[in-house]
Amino acid sequence: MSGNGNAAATAEENSPKMRVIRVGTRKSQLARIQTDSVVATLKASYPGLQFEIIAMSTTGDKILDTALSKIGEKSLFTKELEHALEKNEVDLVVHSLKDLPTVLPPGFTIGAICKRENPHDAVVFHPKFVGKTLETLPEKSVVGTSSLRRAAQLQRKFPHLEFRSIRGNLNTRLRKLDEQQEFSAIILATAGLQRMGWHNRVGQILHPEECMYAVGQGALGVEVRAKDQDILDLVGVLHDPETLLRCIAERAFLRHLEGGCSVPVAVHTAMKDGQLYLTGGVWSLDGSDSIQETMQATIHVPAQHEDGPEDDPQLVGITARNIPRGPQLAAQNLGISLANLLLSKGAKNILDVARQLNDAH
């Protein structure tokens, strides 16, 4: 009898209710805020589980004197976190989706994509230029951005401005803007500013005609071990179906173009009346040469937790077992079709030249 009692006690200790789920994140304040929001949602869904947040620095956090596009290494903000995932030191990792490459290392998958916040870019102005827009900034004003995508589009749109690289986390960039006289304004992701509670610093939100956004911008991705079915089931509740389908289309477009950090590629997606609209573009580094096109596809946005595919093969690095396969494939095909259209119009040449120029500098 006593033996059975011990077995029952052991089973209770090993039951999922007692389990601590370890969540990996970057150390920056924004990353911690984003991770806290994901953990809060998981806690609400699984009140019996405990969650421990483990923060670590990544290569991208450490190399702050070089433009991201020049470092010449993929997975700048993800490699150390993936290493911890691989060694079973954490069970899942919360990322900004735009930091996750469209091809993940073997053994990993994006197990959830959370509801997207505003994906557009924002302009934050130096205190002396508050009330201005990019259009009304004085001639030769210097605007800071760490992104080739932003610089290429904005140089084309605002030729009277000069664009220079600015690195560091959000706090560091804002301090550089406010305390030094080098920059009249800087460009940042609206979602990051909003998550930090800095709505009052948003001086201008850039519309798609001015600057399309990065693939996955404004959404959070939760990376897990691809074979860890328990954790895949656990994080599945975080999937937002519309965000998922938009981001599958965007990531398929980028992957098929073979774009990345070192080339200016941008997108804009919208879901309306059962249609998914995808606009994508590529630019030369100075913005003088560009190709942009829009395509659409009829896609039914499923309700969360309709029964999805059981075999769960990944699409552009994403596993969404609780979302039907048909809409996911339709979104992926839309991204591939748009990429093929741009490639047929000469996108590869623009991107190759951009890559060579970026590598040469």
Rank of each mutant, 00 (worst) to 15 (best):
D99C: 01
L170Y: 15
G218M: 01
L137I: 14
I21G: 01
V235L: 10
G218P: 01
F163T: 14
F158D: 09
G335V: 01
N200R: 04
F163M: 11
T145R: 05
C261F: 05
T319Y: 14
G346F: 07
L338R: 04
D352V: 08
D233R: 08
P208L: 10
V353H: 15
S262F: 01
S262T: 01
L276Q: 04
L232N: 13
A191M: 01
E182A: 13
L276E: 03
E310N: 01
Q275I: 05
L234H: 08
Q328K: 13
L137N: 04
H160A: 05
P309T: 07
P309H: 10
A152L: 13
L244W: 01
H120M: 12
V316P: 06
D233H: 13
A270G: 06
R246V: 13
A84C: 07
E242F: 15
E86G: 08
K79W: 11
L315N: 04
G260C: 15
V282N: 04
A270Q: 13
C114W: 08
V23W: 01
P101T: 11
D359N: 09
I54G: 06
H300T: 14
I71N: 10
I113E: 01
T102S: 13
E293K: 11
W283R: 07
F108D: 01
A191P: 01
G274R: 05
L85P: 01
P119T: 12
K43V: 15
S141I: 06
I205M: 09
A189D: 01
E73Q: 09
L64T: 12
R150C: 06
L161G: 04
T133W: 09
F108W: 14
S37M: 14
I166W: 12
I63S: 10
L134K: 01
E179G: 08
L76D: 12
M212P: 05
R156C: 09
D121N: 04
L315A: 07
K98V: 01
H160D: 12
G48T: 12
R225G: 01
L174G: 04
E250A: 01
L137K: 01
V103I: 08
L100F: 01
L76W: 10
N200D: 14
A151Y: 09
A31E: 01
E73G: 06
I63F: 13
Q304N: 15
R156M: 14
Q304H: 08
A320L: 08
H300R: 05
T319N: 05
S69E: 12
N322A: 01
M295G: 14
A330I: 01
A152K: 07
L42F: 09
N358S: 15
N88H: 10
V215G: 14
E117K: 10
K345N: 11
L97S: 05
H239D: 14
L85G: 01
K74I: 07
F129R: 06
H120P: 04
T102G: 09
V39L: 09
L193D: 03
A303Y: 06
